[in-house]
Design a protein around this nucleic acid. Sequence first.
DNA 1: CGAACGCTTGAGAGGCATCAAGAAACGTGG
DNA 2: CCACGTTTCTTGATGCCTCTCAAGCGTTCG
Lengths: 250, 250
Amino acid sequence: MAGENQSCLIRKISYYLDLTDDEKKLLSRLEETGRDLKRDEILVEEAGPLKDMYIVGRGWLYTYTHTMDGRRQIFEVHFPGDIVGASQAPFERSAYGVAAATDAHVCPFPKSSLNEIFVRSAGLTALFYTFAVLDHATIMDRLRATGRMGAAERVLLVLLQCLARLRITNPDMQDGLEMPLRQELIGDMVGLSNISVSHAVKELSETGLIERDGRYISFPNLDRARSLTDFSDRFYSIDTAWFPRRWQAP
Amino acid sequence: MAGENQSCLIRKISYYLDLTDDEKKLLSRLEETGRDLKRDEILVEEAGPLKDMYIVGRGWLYTYTHTMDGRRQIFEVHFPGDIVGASQAPFERSAYGVAAATDAHVCPFPKSSLNEIFVRSAGLTALFYTFAVLDHATIMDRLRATGRMGAAERVLLVLLQCLARLRITNPDMQDGLEMPLRQELIGDMVGLSNISVSHAVKELSETGLIERDGRYISFPNLDRARSLTDFSDRFYSIDTAWFPRRWQAP
DNA sequence: CGAACGCTTGAGAGGCATCAAGAAACGTGG
DNA sequence: CCACGTTTCTTGATGCCTCTCAAGCGTTCG
C-alpha cells in the first residue's frame, strides 16, 4: 500500500537528505497502516485528543480552527509527503482540526514513533526541525499578506505557496497546478470571504498574472507574481550544512 | 555578565526540564559574550546573512519584515530567555530583520553551537523543537485573529500573549504587565494602524477588559478576555513525556 | 435530467485606513 | 526643577476595501 512505487515521505525527505538504510527502514515503518478519507471528512477533531500523527500519501488535507462566531481559519494545507501533526507533537490535545480537502489516503502512526526517530537519527531529527521551520515560514508569509496586503495579492500568495510545495515532490512540474481547493477554503487561509476570492481571481486573470483552464491554474509571468507578493521560494534553498549526521555520546 | 544572578535562558528551560550539569554547561557557554542594544537599534538586517543567533538577556526585541509598499509586519516579540533566530536556523540568510523594542542586552552565539547541543543532548533538542512549535502556535493564533477578528480582539490577543510569555520566566507575576511597545508596533503585529490600536485600547478600557495606569496594563477579568479571543495558555501545558532523555546508538 | 454544489455578479453596509491637527507624555539640557 | 522639543497617543472627518445578503449561472454527479 505504502510502497507501491515509492513512499512520498521518503521521496520528499530524499530531496534534502541522503538516507541510510537504517533511516529508510525507520521511516517505512511509519507507513505500514493506511486509511482512506473522503473529501470533507474530518480526520482530527478540534480540541480532541492527539495520539497519532499522519503521513499524507495521496490527496490534500488542511488544518483549521473555528472562531467563536463560527468563522474558520485554515492554517496549513498538507500535501503528499507531508507529516500532519508534526507541529503539534508537544501538545496533549489538538488545538486544531484536520480535514480532507480532497479524497485522500493517510498513514497514521503514534507519536511515540517520532520519539524513536529522534533517538536513532540525528539527521532526521534536524530535518524534522527544518520542516517545522518551513511550515513556520509559510504561515508568517500568510500572516504578513493577511495583515498588510490586498485581496488579490493574498490569493496570489496562496497559489504560489501551493505551487512551491508541490514542486518539492514533483520537481518536473510546470508553472501551473491543479487547484482542488474551493474558493471558500482559499479565503479561509488569508482571511477573505469566498466572494472576495472570486473577485480577486477575476482580477488576477485580467491583469495576466494567472491563467485559468478549469481547475488548472498557470502563471504566465511567475517572476512578476513572485515579486508582487514578495514571495521567495524557501523550499528549495535549505541550509543542510549544519545538520548533524550522527549523535555523539555525552 | 550572563550569570549575575542566573541566566534567563537556564531559568526558562528549567521551567520545562530538569537540566543535567553537562547540559547547564553547554547552555552557559552560549552566554559568554554580550552586547547592549539601544531601543530601535537593528540587530539583524532584513535579507542579511544569518551567522549568529541571540539569547535575550534583558529587554524586548522583535522580528519584522517590510512589504513592498513600505508597511511593516511584526512576527514575533522576543522576551528575556528567548532565543532569537531559532526558527530560522535552516536558512542561509535571514528573511527577517530583528530590532530592539526597548533598550536590551543580548548574547550572540554562532549557529554551529546549536549543532553541538543537538548532538550532545536529546532532551535539549526536543525542547528546542518544542520552543519552535510554541512560536508557531503563537503566530497561528495571531493569524486567526488578523484574518477573522475585529480590532479590539486583535489588540487584546497581543496583550494576552505577552502576559502569557512573560509568566514563563516570572511565575509570580500578577494579572498585568508593563507594556513598552508603541501602539504602532502592536498594530504591526496584527495588521492594524496605530490609530485603530488607539481606538481598540479605548474600547477595551471602556468595556472593562483592561485597565491602564501609564504603561501598566492589567486585566480585571482575565477569563472573559481569554474566552473573547479564544486564547488558551499553551505555554504552561507542554507534554514533555515523549521527550527522549538520552540518545541511542544506531 | 434534476438537484446539489460552487462560482459569479450586484447592491448596500460597516470597519478600518488615511490624512490632519491637537493633547499628553517623555527626555534633554539649561 | 523647569522649559523646550520630540515622540507618542488621541480625536475627528472622509474614503476605500471587504463583508454580508441575495440572486443568477455554471458544473458535476447521482
